[in-house]
Protein backbone atom coordinates (compact mmCIF):
# COMPACT_ATOMS: atom_id res chain seq x y z
CA UNK A 1 0.00 0.00 0.00
CA UNK A 2 1.34 3.36 -1.06
CA UNK A 3 0.22 5.20 2.03
CA UNK A 4 2.35 3.44 4.59
CA UNK A 5 4.33 5.99 6.54
CA UNK A 6 6.37 5.88 9.70
CA UNK A 7 4.33 6.89 12.68
CA UNK A 8 4.15 6.51 16.44
CA UNK A 9 3.68 2.84 17.20
CA UNK A 10 0.08 2.15 18.04
CA UNK A 11 -1.15 -0.82 20.03
CA UNK A 12 -4.16 -3.12 19.84
CA UNK A 13 -5.78 -1.09 22.59
CA UNK A 14 -5.71 2.03 20.45
CA UNK A 15 -8.08 0.29 18.05
CA UNK A 16 -10.65 -0.78 20.65
CA UNK A 17 -13.63 1.58 20.73
CA UNK A 18 -15.54 2.48 23.91
CA UNK A 19 -18.74 0.89 22.59
CA UNK A 20 -20.20 -2.27 24.14
CA UNK A 21 -19.77 -5.20 21.78
CA UNK A 22 -23.22 -6.65 21.24
CA UNK A 23 -22.57 -9.90 19.41
CA UNK A 24 -23.85 -13.15 20.95
CA UNK A 25 -21.46 -14.75 23.43
CA UNK A 26 -19.29 -17.26 21.59
CA UNK A 27 -19.78 -15.64 18.18
CA UNK A 28 -16.89 -16.06 15.75
CA UNK A 29 -16.94 -12.30 15.18
CA UNK A 30 -15.15 -11.73 18.49
CA UNK A 31 -12.11 -13.63 17.35
CA UNK A 32 -11.97 -11.77 14.04
CA UNK A 33 -12.37 -8.42 15.81
CA UNK A 34 -9.55 -9.19 18.23
CA UNK A 35 -7.24 -10.25 15.41
CA UNK A 36 -8.05 -7.21 13.31
CA UNK A 37 -7.42 -4.91 16.26
CA UNK A 38 -4.13 -6.67 16.80
CA UNK A 39 -3.05 -6.35 13.16
CA UNK A 40 -4.04 -2.71 12.67
CA UNK A 41 -0.98 -1.25 14.44
CA UNK A 42 1.23 -3.35 12.17
CA UNK A 43 -0.04 -1.52 9.06
CA UNK A 44 1.94 1.59 9.86
CA UNK A 45 -0.96 3.73 8.68
CA UNK A 46 -1.65 6.91 10.68
CA UNK A 47 -4.51 6.13 13.06
CA UNK A 48 -6.78 8.81 11.58
CA UNK A 49 -6.35 7.40 8.08
CA UNK A 50 -8.05 4.10 8.82
CA UNK A 51 -11.71 3.86 7.82
CA UNK A 52 -14.04 0.90 8.31
CA UNK A 53 -17.20 0.74 6.22
CA UNK A 54 -19.95 -1.84 6.55
CA UNK A 55 -23.41 -2.69 5.34
CA UNK A 56 -26.11 -4.40 7.40
CA UNK A 57 -26.00 -7.62 9.37
CA UNK A 58 -24.23 -8.95 12.43
CA UNK A 59 -20.81 -8.55 10.84
CA UNK A 60 -21.63 -5.01 9.79
CA UNK A 61 -21.71 -3.81 13.41
CA UNK A 62 -17.95 -4.21 13.25
CA UNK A 63 -17.05 -0.50 12.62
CA UNK A 64 -18.72 0.54 15.88
CA UNK A 65 -16.22 -1.57 17.76
CA UNK A 66 -13.16 -0.24 16.01
CA UNK A 67 -11.60 2.95 17.30
CA UNK A 68 -11.10 4.36 13.82
CA UNK A 69 -13.28 6.34 11.45
CA UNK A 70 -16.29 4.15 10.79
CA UNK A 71 -19.39 4.19 8.63
CA UNK A 72 -22.21 1.70 9.20
CA UNK A 73 -24.20 2.13 6.01
CA UNK A 74 -27.06 0.28 4.34
CA UNK A 75 -27.63 -3.29 3.30
CA UNK A 76 -25.23 -4.49 0.64
CA UNK A 77 -23.90 -1.09 -0.38
CA UNK A 78 -20.69 -0.89 1.63
CA UNK A 79 -18.37 -1.54 -1.36
CA UNK A 80 -19.89 1.38 -3.29
CA UNK A 81 -19.68 3.72 -0.31
CA UNK A 82 -16.14 2.58 0.47
CA UNK A 83 -15.24 3.31 -3.13
CA UNK A 84 -16.47 6.89 -2.69
CA UNK A 85 -14.33 7.23 0.43
CA UNK A 86 -11.25 5.97 -1.39
CA UNK A 87 -11.83 8.12 -4.50
CA UNK A 88 -12.35 11.16 -2.29
CA UNK A 89 -9.15 10.59 -0.37
CA UNK A 90 -6.73 7.97 -1.71
CA UNK A 91 -4.53 8.44 1.37
CA UNK A 92 -7.06 6.58 3.46
CA UNK A 93 -6.78 2.90 4.28
CA UNK A 94 -10.31 1.71 3.58
CA UNK A 95 -11.70 -1.55 4.97
CA UNK A 96 -15.08 -3.11 4.33
CA UNK A 97 -16.81 -5.64 6.55
CA UNK A 98 -19.62 -7.62 5.02
CA UNK A 99 -21.34 -10.95 5.41
CA UNK A 100 -22.56 -13.67 3.07
CA UNK A 101 -26.03 -12.16 2.91
CA UNK A 102 -24.95 -8.51 2.77
CA UNK A 103 -22.14 -9.10 0.30
CA UNK A 104 -23.46 -11.86 -1.93
CA UNK A 105 -27.22 -11.49 -1.80
CA UNK A 106 -28.47 -7.91 -1.60
CA UNK A 107 -25.05 -6.48 -2.36
CA UNK A 108 -23.73 -9.04 -4.84
CA UNK A 109 -23.75 -6.53 -7.63
CA UNK A 110 -21.59 -3.99 -5.80
CA UNK A 111 -19.17 -6.67 -4.64
CA UNK A 112 -18.75 -7.94 -8.18
CA UNK A 113 -17.99 -4.49 -9.55
CA UNK A 114 -15.64 -3.51 -6.73
CA UNK A 115 -13.67 -6.69 -7.41
CA UNK A 116 -13.35 -6.20 -11.15
CA UNK A 117 -12.49 -2.51 -10.79
CA UNK A 118 -9.74 -3.36 -8.35
CA UNK A 119 -10.33 -0.29 -6.20
CA UNK A 120 -7.88 -0.21 -3.31
CA UNK A 121 -10.22 -1.34 -0.55
CA UNK A 122 -9.97 -4.39 1.70
CA UNK A 123 -13.07 -6.54 2.01
CA UNK A 124 -13.61 -8.97 4.85
CA UNK A 125 -16.53 -11.26 4.21
CA UNK A 126 -17.70 -13.09 7.31
CA UNK A 127 -19.29 -16.22 5.89
CA UNK A 128 -21.49 -18.02 8.42
CA UNK A 129 -23.78 -19.52 5.78
CA UNK A 130 -26.89 -18.14 7.49
CA UNK A 131 -28.79 -14.93 8.12
CA UNK A 132 -28.06 -14.09 11.74
CA UNK A 133 -29.51 -10.65 12.43
CA UNK A 134 -32.86 -11.54 10.86
CA UNK A 135 -32.83 -14.71 12.93
CA UNK A 136 -31.94 -17.71 10.91
CA UNK A 137 -33.05 -17.76 7.28
CA UNK A 138 -30.86 -19.51 4.71
CA UNK A 139 -28.27 -17.37 3.00
CA UNK A 140 -26.74 -17.51 -0.50
CA UNK A 141 -23.93 -19.64 0.90
CA UNK A 142 -26.17 -22.06 2.83
CA UNK A 143 -25.89 -25.60 1.56
CA UNK A 144 -28.57 -26.93 -0.80
CA UNK A 145 -31.47 -28.42 1.13
CA UNK A 146 -30.60 -26.71 4.42
CA UNK A 147 -33.60 -26.58 6.70
CA UNK A 148 -34.12 -23.16 8.19
CA UNK A 149 -36.95 -20.98 9.48
CA UNK A 150 -37.68 -19.80 5.95
CA UNK A 151 -37.10 -23.21 4.37
CA UNK A 152 -38.65 -25.84 6.63
CA UNK A 153 -38.52 -28.37 3.79
CA UNK A 154 -35.01 -27.45 2.75
CA UNK A 155 -33.43 -24.55 0.85
CA UNK A 156 -34.14 -24.97 -2.86
CA UNK A 157 -31.20 -22.69 -3.84
CA UNK A 158 -27.78 -23.89 -4.81
CA UNK A 159 -25.10 -21.94 -2.92
CA UNK A 160 -22.42 -19.62 -4.26
CA UNK A 161 -18.83 -20.06 -3.16
CA UNK A 162 -17.49 -16.62 -2.19
CA UNK A 163 -13.82 -17.17 -3.02
CA UNK A 164 -14.49 -18.64 -6.46
CA UNK A 165 -17.07 -15.90 -7.10
CA UNK A 166 -14.34 -13.35 -6.38
CA UNK A 167 -11.89 -15.08 -8.72
CA UNK A 168 -14.58 -15.17 -11.39
CA UNK A 169 -15.00 -11.42 -10.98
CA UNK A 170 -11.32 -10.89 -11.82
CA UNK A 171 -10.40 -10.02 -8.25
CA UNK A 172 -6.68 -9.46 -7.77
CA UNK A 173 -6.44 -10.80 -4.22
CA UNK A 174 -8.48 -13.66 -2.81
CA UNK A 175 -7.76 -15.29 0.52
CA UNK A 176 -9.61 -17.55 2.89
CA UNK A 177 -9.33 -18.25 6.61
CA UNK A 178 -11.22 -19.63 9.57
CA UNK A 179 -12.35 -17.19 12.29
CA UNK A 180 -10.41 -18.87 15.08
CA UNK A 181 -7.15 -19.22 13.17
CA UNK A 182 -5.35 -16.21 14.61
CA UNK A 183 -2.07 -16.90 12.87
CA UNK A 184 -3.58 -17.23 9.42
CA UNK A 185 -5.90 -14.26 9.90
CA UNK A 186 -2.92 -12.20 10.90
CA UNK A 187 -1.00 -13.27 7.81
CA UNK A 188 -3.73 -12.63 5.28
CA UNK A 189 -4.77 -9.30 6.82
CA UNK A 190 -1.21 -8.05 6.49
CA UNK A 191 -0.92 -9.36 2.96
CA UNK A 192 -4.24 -7.76 2.06
CA UNK A 193 -3.17 -4.44 3.52
CA UNK A 194 -0.08 -4.42 1.34
CA UNK A 195 -2.01 -5.34 -1.81
CA UNK A 196 -2.58 -2.32 -4.06
CA UNK A 197 -6.08 -3.14 -5.19
CA UNK A 198 -9.22 -4.84 -3.96
CA UNK A 199 -8.36 -7.54 -1.45
CA UNK A 200 -11.10 -10.07 -0.78
CA UNK A 201 -10.97 -12.24 2.32
CA UNK A 202 -13.53 -14.92 2.98
CA UNK A 203 -13.58 -15.78 6.66
CA UNK A 204 -15.53 -18.86 7.78
CA UNK A 205 -17.29 -17.55 10.84
CA UNK A 206 -19.27 -19.68 13.24
CA UNK A 207 -22.77 -18.48 14.17
CA UNK A 208 -23.37 -20.07 17.57
CA UNK A 209 -27.08 -19.40 17.56
CA UNK A 210 -28.37 -20.21 14.07
CA UNK A 211 -25.71 -22.35 12.42
CA UNK A 212 -23.44 -23.64 15.17
CA UNK A 213 -20.72 -26.00 14.08
CA UNK A 214 -21.25 -25.34 10.38
CA UNK A 215 -17.52 -25.59 9.76
CA UNK A 216 -16.57 -28.14 12.39
CA UNK A 217 -15.72 -30.69 9.72
CA UNK A 218 -12.56 -28.77 8.89
CA UNK A 219 -12.39 -25.89 11.38
CA UNK A 220 -12.43 -27.86 14.59
CA UNK A 221 -9.02 -28.27 16.19
CA UNK A 222 -9.25 -32.04 15.82
CA UNK A 223 -10.08 -31.82 12.11
CA UNK A 224 -8.01 -28.88 11.02
CA UNK A 225 -4.78 -30.68 10.11
CA UNK A 226 -6.50 -33.43 8.25
CA UNK A 227 -9.01 -31.30 6.36
CA UNK A 228 -7.47 -27.88 5.77
CA UNK A 229 -4.93 -27.18 3.10
CA UNK A 230 -2.86 -24.08 3.66
CA UNK A 231 -1.95 -22.73 0.25
CA UNK A 232 1.45 -21.04 0.28
CA UNK A 233 2.89 -19.52 -2.86
CA UNK A 234 5.81 -21.59 -4.21
CA UNK A 235 5.19 -24.52 -1.88
CA UNK A 236 3.62 -27.89 -2.67
CA UNK A 237 -0.09 -28.20 -1.92
CA UNK A 238 0.32 -30.71 0.89
CA UNK A 239 -2.09 -31.40 3.76
CA UNK A 240 -3.14 -34.08 6.20
CA UNK A 241 -2.32 -34.87 9.79
CA UNK A 242 0.69 -36.80 8.53
CA UNK A 243 1.54 -34.13 5.93
CA UNK A 244 1.54 -36.90 3.40
CA UNK A 245 -1.36 -35.94 1.17
CA UNK A 246 -1.19 -33.59 -1.72
CA UNK A 247 -3.03 -32.35 -4.77
CA UNK A 248 -2.10 -33.25 -8.27
CA UNK A 249 -3.68 -32.84 -11.68
CA UNK A 250 -5.43 -35.76 -13.28
CA UNK A 251 -4.13 -35.11 -16.77
CA UNK A 252 -7.01 -36.97 -18.39
CA UNK A 253 -9.75 -34.81 -16.87
CA UNK A 254 -7.74 -31.70 -16.01
CA UNK A 255 -9.23 -31.96 -12.52
CA UNK A 256 -7.62 -32.07 -9.12
CA UNK A 257 -7.09 -35.30 -7.29
CA UNK A 258 -5.77 -36.19 -3.88
CA UNK A 259 -2.63 -38.29 -3.88
CA UNK A 260 -0.84 -39.81 -0.92
CA UNK A 261 2.89 -39.37 -0.88
CA UNK A 262 4.66 -42.69 -0.51
CA UNK A 263 1.80 -44.68 -1.98
CA UNK A 264 1.86 -46.02 -5.54
CA UNK A 265 5.17 -44.38 -6.26
CA UNK A 266 3.89 -40.84 -5.48
CA UNK A 267 6.59 -38.48 -4.32
CA UNK A 268 6.49 -34.82 -3.32
CA UNK A 269 7.63 -33.98 -6.84
CA UNK A 270 4.27 -35.18 -8.16
CA UNK A 271 2.40 -32.68 -6.04
CA UNK A 272 1.22 -29.37 -7.47
CA UNK A 273 3.12 -26.30 -6.32
CA UNK A 274 0.92 -23.36 -5.41
CA UNK A 275 1.20 -20.46 -7.79
CA UNK A 276 -0.96 -17.66 -6.41
CA UNK A 277 -0.81 -15.83 -9.76
CA UNK A 278 -2.59 -18.70 -11.51
CA UNK A 279 -6.30 -17.92 -11.46
CA UNK A 280 -7.28 -21.30 -12.86
CA UNK A 281 -5.53 -23.12 -10.05
CA UNK A 282 -6.97 -20.67 -7.52
CA UNK A 283 -10.45 -21.33 -8.86
CA UNK A 284 -10.00 -25.08 -8.57
CA UNK A 285 -8.67 -24.73 -5.03
CA UNK A 286 -11.59 -22.54 -4.03
CA UNK A 287 -14.17 -25.00 -5.33
CA UNK A 288 -12.87 -28.33 -4.04
CA UNK A 289 -15.80 -30.36 -2.75
CA UNK A 290 -15.64 -31.19 0.94
CA UNK A 291 -15.03 -33.73 2.44
CA UNK A 292 -13.62 -35.57 -0.60
CA UNK A 293 -11.09 -32.78 -0.76
CA UNK A 294 -9.61 -30.54 1.92
CA UNK A 295 -10.72 -26.91 2.32
CA UNK A 296 -8.11 -24.57 0.88
CA UNK A 297 -7.16 -21.61 3.07
CA UNK A 298 -4.53 -18.90 2.80
CA UNK A 299 -3.86 -16.64 -0.15
CA UNK A 300 -5.47 -18.49 -3.04
CA UNK A 301 -4.86 -15.79 -5.61
CA UNK A 302 -2.84 -12.58 -5.77
CA UNK A 303 -1.76 -10.66 -8.80
CA UNK A 304 -1.04 -6.95 -9.15
CA UNK A 305 -2.97 -4.93 -11.68
CA UNK A 306 -3.37 -1.13 -11.79
CA UNK A 307 -6.01 -0.17 -9.26
CA UNK A 308 -9.08 1.86 -10.14
CA UNK A 309 -8.11 4.73 -7.86
CA UNK A 310 -4.62 4.84 -9.35
CA UNK A 311 -6.05 5.05 -12.88
CA UNK A 312 -8.54 7.74 -11.91
CA UNK A 313 -5.86 9.78 -10.16
CA UNK A 314 -3.66 9.53 -13.23
CA UNK A 315 -6.49 10.75 -15.45
CA UNK A 316 -7.19 13.67 -13.13
CA UNK A 317 -3.51 14.56 -12.97
CA UNK A 318 -3.22 14.38 -16.75
CA UNK A 319 -6.26 16.64 -17.16
CA UNK A 320 -4.86 19.13 -14.68
CA UNK A 321 -1.48 19.13 -16.42
CA UNK A 322 -3.20 19.85 -19.71
CA UNK A 323 -5.78 22.42 -18.64
CA UNK A 324 -5.40 25.22 -16.16
CA UNK A 325 -8.88 25.67 -14.73
CA UNK A 326 -10.37 29.00 -15.68
CA UNK A 327 -14.01 29.06 -14.66
CA UNK A 328 -14.77 32.27 -16.51
CA UNK A 329 -13.42 30.76 -19.70
CA UNK A 330 -15.30 27.54 -19.14
CA UNK A 331 -18.61 29.32 -18.68
CA UNK A 332 -18.05 31.22 -21.90
CA UNK A 333 -16.98 28.18 -23.93
CA UNK A 334 -18.56 27.27 -27.27
CA UNK A 335 -20.11 29.78 -29.64
CA UNK A 336 -20.54 33.12 -27.92
CA UNK A 337 -21.68 36.52 -29.04
CA UNK A 338 -21.49 39.86 -27.35
CA UNK A 339 -24.31 42.37 -27.16
Amino acid sequence: MSNIVETTKLTKKDFESDQDVRWCPGCGDYSILANVQKVMPELGVPHENVVWVSGIGCSSRFPYYMNTYGFHTIHGRAPAIAMGVKIANPELSVWVVTGDGDGLSIGGNHLMHALRRNIDIKILMFNNRIYGLTKGQYSPTSEFGKQTKSAPTGAPDYPVDPASFAIGCSATFVARAVDTDAKLLNDILLRAAKHAGTAFMEIYQNCVVFNDGAFDGFADKTQKDEHQLRAIHGQPLIFGAQKNKGLRIDSRTLGLEVATIGEGGVTEKDILVHDETNSTLAYMLARMPFPQFPVAVGVLYAKERPSYDETVLEQVAAAKAKTKPDLQKLLASGNTWTV
Binding site: I87, A319, K320
Partner: peptide, 26 residues
Protein backbone atom coordinates in the same frame (compact mmCIF):
# COMPACT_ATOMS: atom_id res chain seq x y z
CA UNK B 1 -11.56 16.71 -14.49
CA UNK B 2 -9.23 19.71 -14.47
CA UNK B 3 -11.98 21.66 -12.71
CA UNK B 4 -11.99 19.39 -9.68
CA UNK B 5 -14.72 17.05 -10.83
CA UNK B 6 -14.17 13.30 -10.71
CA UNK B 7 -16.90 11.36 -12.45
CA UNK B 8 -17.57 7.78 -11.49
CA UNK B 9 -19.79 5.67 -13.71
CA UNK B 10 -21.12 3.07 -11.32
CA UNK B 11 -22.75 -0.31 -11.74
CA UNK B 12 -26.24 0.92 -10.89
CA UNK B 13 -28.21 3.86 -9.54
CA UNK B 14 -27.81 2.72 -5.96
CA UNK B 15 -24.05 2.51 -6.27
CA UNK B 16 -24.04 5.91 -7.97
CA UNK B 17 -25.61 7.63 -4.98
CA UNK B 18 -23.60 5.52 -2.55
CA UNK B 19 -20.26 6.43 -4.08
CA UNK B 20 -21.30 10.08 -3.77
CA UNK B 21 -22.26 9.60 -0.12
CA UNK B 22 -18.92 7.89 0.57
CA UNK B 23 -17.14 10.83 -1.02
CA UNK B 24 -19.12 13.34 1.04
CA UNK B 25 -18.27 11.40 4.19
CA UNK B 26 -14.59 11.67 3.21
Amino acid sequence: KAYGVTTVQMEDEIAAVCVSIGASYA
